[in-house]
Design a protein around this nucleic acid. Structure first.
Lengths: 344, 344
DNA sequence: AACACGAATGTAACCGCTTACAACCGAGGA
DNA sequence: TCCTCGGTTGTAAGCGGTTACATTCGTGTT
């Protein structure tokens, strides 16, 4: 593997000059630059990032850590594009305009993963933390060593940057659509993982919205794991109830699809007998029958903002930590009881 | 940021000892080790990966480069879990057992991306290349500087390790099912991107399988881009033909879904009037109506094998380059005309 | 008591690149 | 002709770990 020394020798210059050429400094005579570039091309020199990182105190790498939800191997293959994947693509797109790269690490939250993240922190200039992978204290400790931006995390006010989605507003809007728009009174809710802040927020917002309307009740089935299978399970729980709610909102789309299919299997018409709604607006929701009414999140935007913010921090921005909240969008399709949309 | 020097001073030992403790060497007296560990814990020391990388000649990072297909932002949000995402998760899972991390980079193939990859090669110990991001010559050049394992790449015999799926066999099996199992004679095929080796192979295999049966014909609509939208477009092309094929196979599931939906919009019954099949076995294919018959790929396994192979290479394995081909699996559901499956 | 030897620890060179600072060069000015 | 000065290029000191090799220490031998 050729080094700057090799290039310098072959080009008849010093390593300083080679370095200047590599970094595009303008105080190198064109003729010298060309000679050096020719040698670089010839020997296929690529600077060693470790050496660069050591000397520049900048690794040009940021990390992204998130939860690995699909423990079951096949789950991952089958389920739709995961939240974290969309974020990854978005971040990567932002990074494409820089020469920073993205380092990834997924895992279940827990002590072991914490150690992994800690080791990882030595490899990066900054960190994006998706959802609640870390306990608040650990997050804070991390944030003390390097720039950290949290995405969709609950840890507010922890003195670090957070970019999130306005789950409560979206859920409220959906609840009002079901109640005011369709006149449902007996609502149901299928909850998500307790360790997913989003899931918790959605449940809370839906419940309080429903309860704020006199005469409305909400039957909560807690603790799904965001998978289609857990939606089916929840549906069976619902079927065991004395009366099935007129409308069932779910903490995410995957579970909503599971709920719909299981109810349909039992001969229940959707949305005729029971309306079902989701949250996330994933692709499968558009192709199921009936098409799923849901709340769309600007997931990609979340990643873009977070990445941009992190890069600023790494550049040395010293403005106080900020929490940014992005709006959701109600996506009305057929599963709530609305007529087929004309478009599409 | 504390360094080994700080830790050494505070613990009253030399940097060598600190390093030995960090690396778990057994020639440190327990009492010394504990003292050092205490200091490490106290000051929150995390070794700088650049310095480690420089001195150990090992970065403990591998890279993965792949195509970014969804140029349109919303495409990414809507489409199912992308091939490359599944691979990423699989690789990451393998890495979880090591202390190597995964560096990611997506991009359109092209000169600019090549430069990015080249720079990236300075940051990693090895590289996973998904699909044909690079021209064979570039791939070869890369492979000369560091270990490279190609995934689902067409570049065979390039003297580097390749892990791929047996597309032809899968497609052949599917074609035979349509022809022999259902008796279709006039087949159609909706092709994928010309730069996707998988798409090309699938088309070729399907065509030749169909043509090998006397009396069978195949009507090819080329050049989709693997998106649902391009499936719709292809369907419209098909509708413009004099006669619509009895069965239409598509280069992937997304397009198959688009084809189905567009045909259905025109009042064509599936599979009654036209059978439609896909390739990939993504989640949405299970929830559309009718459920999609398709060919499943062991995508995750692909990633696992490739990652394992790359780690071996990095460890110094010097066995000759090998090409590994994994089998596909025919997934029969309703869109081909088979009765509803009992299970599920 | 002197010695040998293995275990534990310290010393310092080195990994490859960047950059502050020094040195040098040639042209224009005194 | 000598000096000054901007533009180029070279020298060498880090950056923060790792590790070969040297050193020291404690213990059992003779």
């Amino acid at each position: 593997m050729p080094t700057v020394y090799d290039v310098a020798r072959l080009a008849g210059v010093s390593t300083a000059t080679v370095s200047r050429v590599m970094r595009g400094s303008d105080l190198v005579r064109p003729v010298t630059r060309d000679r050096v570039l020719a040698v670089i091309e010839e020997v296929g020199f690529v600077p060693d990032a470790s050496a660069q990182g050591l000397s520049r105190r900048r690794k040009e790498i940021i990390g992204l850590v998130g939860l690995e939800r699909g423990v079951n191997e096949t789950d991952i293959e089958r389920d739709g594009l995961l939240f974290v994947d969309v974020v990854v693509h978005a971040v990567e797109a932002v990074l494409r305009g820089t020469d920073t790269s993205l380092l990834l690490s997924f895992g279940p939250s827990g002590e072991q993963f914490h150690d992994r993240i800690r080791a990882l922190s030595g490899k990066v200039d900054g960190l994006l933390v998706v959802e609640d992978v870390l306990a608040p204290a650990q997050l804070r400790a991390l944030a003390r060593r390097l720039p950290v931006v949290a995405i969709a995390a609950s840890a507010a006010g922890a003195g670090l940057d957070v970019v999130r989605v306005d789950n409560p507003a979206g859920m409220r809007e959906l609840a009002m659509h079901l109640i005011t728009g369709h006149g449902y009174r007996r609502l149901g809710f299928v909850g998500g993982p307790r360790d997913a802040p989003d899931a918790v927020e959605r449940l809370a917002a839906f419940s309080s919205a429903v309860r704020s309307v006199p005469g409305c009740t909400v039957d909560v089935v807690p603790g799904g794991d965001f998978s289609e299978a857990s939606g089916r399970t929840a549906a069976r729980v619902l079927l065991g109830r004395e009366a099935i709610p007129e409308a069932v909102a779910c903490a995410n789309d995957q579970m909503a699809i599971g709920v719909m299919r299981e109810l349909q299997r039992s001969g229940i018409a959707i949305p005729g007998d029971v309306a079902v709604t989701g949250f996330d607006n994933i692709f499968p929701g558009r192709v199921v029958d009936p098409a799923l009414t849901t709340v769309g999140q600007p997931v990609r935007e979340l990643g873009v903002r977070a990445a941009a913010r992190l890069l600023e921090r790494i550049e040395g921005s010293t403005e106080p930590a900020r929490s940014e909240t992005l709006p959701t969008e109600l996506v009305i399709r057929r599963s709530c009881g609305c007529p087929a949309e004309a478009k599409e």
